[in-house]
Amino acid sequence: MASRETLLNIGLALLLLVLPVIANYSGEPFYVTLATRIAILSLAAVGLNLALGLGGLVSFGHAAFFGIGGYAAGILATHAFSGDPLIFGLPGTKQMLIIWIVAIAAGGLAALLIGLITLRTSGVYFIMITLAFAQMIFYFAISWPAYGGEDGLPIYVRNAFPGVNTLKPLSYFLVCYALLAVGLVLFKLFQDSRFGAALQAARQNEVRVASVGIPPYRIRLVAFVISGMFTAVAGALFADLNRFVSPSMLSWQMSGELIVLIILGGVGRLFGPVAGAALFVLLEHWLGGITERWQFFLGLILLGVVLFARGGLIGLIAGRARHG
C-alpha cells in the first residue's frame, strides 16, 4: 500500500501539471508562467535538497550554481545571436539540449572546486565559506562588462528545443515540468541507493560512517557536485523563462530563497522543494498583490514552520520521515 507521503506527492505532481493546462485553455497564460517558475525553482531546490536535506550540508551559496547555469544559457545564446565565436572558434548555440549540458558541466565543475575547499569545514564555517564563494562569483559577474556586468544580459528569443515551440508558455512549461520530473526521479533513486545511505548516515553520524570504512568527505563531495549540477540546469531554464540573466541570480538573497523553499516544504523530503516553491511563488503573487511588504508575512510563516512544523508542509500533512 502506498504511504500517505506517496499519495501526497502524486497529488502535488498532478496538480502542478493539470492546473497550468486548465489555465492555458481558459486564456490565463500568466498562471502558466507562474507554474513554470514553480517548476524551475523546485528543480533548483531539489538540487540543494540533495546536499542540504540528505547530506546535512547547509550551503548558503547555491545561487552560484543557479547563476552559472543562467549565464551559460545567456552567453551561449548571445554568441549564437551575434555570430561571434565563443572560445577556440566554437560558436554559440540556441539549442537548449546543448545549453543544458554546458550548464551542468559548468555547475558541476564549480561545485567540485568549491566543494573541495568548503567540505573540509562544517557547521557555521561551511555556511560562511559557501556564501563567500558565491559572493566572489557575484562580484565577478557585476564587474565583467563583456556580458552586461551589472545590467545583465538579455536573451532576445527564447532558446529552442527540438520539436517544441518554446515560445508558447504551455510548451515551455511542459519542458520544465519534464525536467523537474527527471530531477525528482533521480533524487529518489539516489536517496534509496548505497550512495544515499552513506550520505544520509554521514549527516547523522560522521564518525560511524568512517568507522565502517566509508570516507565521508568523498561521499559529500560527490553529493555536492551532483547538487550543483541540478541547480545549474534549473538556472539555465530560469534564464530562458525570463529571457534575461543578471547578477541577481547569483546573489545571496537567491541562495537564501532556495534554503527557505526547502524549509517551507520539508527538509530532505522528496517533494519538499515542490511544496515549498509552490507556496513561495503563490504567496509572492497573492500577498505581493496586496502589499509590497509580503515578505514580512513569509517571515511569519517561516517562523511558524520552524517552531511548530519541523517537517515543513510535507511533514505537516504526511507525518515524520521513515527510513526502512
Binding site: 548516515a201 547523522q204 560511524r208 560512517v209 565502517v212 527510513h323 526502512g324
Partner: peptide
C-alpha cells in the same frame, strides 16, 4: 546513525 533502523546501520557496514 540514530534515524536509521538497526538493520540499516548494519547494512552500511555490509555495503562498505
Amino acid at each position: 546513525a540514530p534515524e536509521f533502523s538497526a538493520l540499516r546501520n548494519v547494512m552500511l557496514a555490509v555495503q562498505s
